[in-house]
């Protein structure tokens, strides 16, 4: 298999494949962070998570159009505005959904799953009616195009680097929010013992709503970042949902570090296998290994010790 390649070519292939894996890793991390907050901390299954991401992507698409039409001079910076808008739009929708739907179902997790699936169907159809069934792409600002030549053989696309930087900074932001802010402290307190948290004066209802909203907002930012590396269609969200849940469950629900570690191992395994096998078989094998490990170790890679 390797006989046809020289050593330097092999090294380049592994480096490029490893880098492709890193981009996939960033994508997984971005997808999974919002879910790690919602599912990991609140135990709510949000099957519409993918649709919240797509909302962020469409918001980015709209913003880029507005900038292109009215402020072409500032086009290079539209993405940062779009990210903020995506966070606000998805977050606001998340608050609304929590208020109207999720809060009635906290005691019935399986029913939440069905209701949010219904929500995802409604959102998909809404996107299709508003934006059309065809995929839309945004025009990337000039500074994000092209690639960075490291050596003669290894080239790294700049938008890939951007997505990676984004993944790292959003992870850091979520970490700070979770472990340094009052909100994070309250979320973790509620996760440990809801009744006690309420008894010491935490407004559990409001914290739940805010947590759901922030989780959805992070999903929106992820969707926004995806427009940099691919196009957006109404049903794109559904493609991600299984991967995303597996990443979170595999990492051990409730552990941010676990989520990142599992995103890393799954993405690397998949992109390395993709080189040797067809894309679909690489995916099948990766998923099978993940499911197999989960059967042996249901609590995932990293588990928090909690008193239930």
């Amino acid at each position: 298999m390797f006989a046809d390649y020289s050593m330097s070519e092999l090294g380049a292939i592994f480096a490029m494949q490893g880098f492709a894996g890193l981009i996939l890793f960033s994508v997984f991390v971005l997808m999974a962070l919002g879910l790690a907050i919602i599912f990991g901390q609140m135990g709510v299954i949000n099957m519409a998570h993918g649709e919240f991401m797509i909302l962020g992507a469409y918001v980015t698409y709209l913003t880029s159009n507005v900038f292109a039409d009215y402020m072409p001079a500032l086009f290079g910076t539209y993405f940062f505005v779009a990210m903020l808008l995506a966070f606000l739009a998805s977050g606001a929708l998340g608050l609304l959904v929590e208020w109207s739907l999720i809060r009635h179902l906290y005691k019935r997790p399986l029913d939440t799953l069905l209701a949010t699936w219904g929500l995802s169907l409604i959102l998909q159809q809404t996107y299709r009616s508003v934006f059309g069934a065809r995929e839309v792409g945004v025009s990337i600002p000039d500074w994000m195009m092209g690639s960075l030549p490291l050596t003669d053989l290894i080239e790294i696309p700049i938008n890939g680097i951007f997505v990676m930087v984004l993944a790292v900074s959003i992870s850091a932001a979520v970490y700070v929010m979770m472990f340094r802010s009052t909100w994070g402290k309250q979320v973790r307190a509620i996760n440990q013992n809801r009744v006690m948290a309420g008894a010491v004066g935490i407004n559990t209802e409001w914290t739940d709503r805010l947590t759901f909203g922030i989780g959805c907002g992070v999903a929106g930012v992820a969707g926004s970042a995806f427009t940099m590396i691919g196009s957006t269609g109404p049903t794109a969200g559904q493609l991600y949902i299984v991967d995303t849940f597996l990443v979170v469950v595999f990492g051990g629900a409730g552990s941010l570090l676990g989520t990142i570690a599992s995103a890393f191992s799954i993405s690397q395994a998949q992109s390395i296998m993709e080189f040797f096998l067809s894309g679909s078989m690489a995916k099948v094998l990766t998923l099978l290994v993940v499911v197999g490990i989960l059967m042996i170790r249901p609590q995932g890679l990293f588990s928090l010790k909690l008193r239930k």
């Binding site: 135990g43 299954i45 469950v249 894309g279 078989m281 099948v284 998923l287």
Partner: peptide, 20 residues
Amino acid sequence: VYFAIITQAFAAIMTILIIG
């Protein structure tokens, strides 16, 4: 919910496998 998610993953795996 864990069982639900893992069975759903099987549904995804099976489809990818058949199509691939």
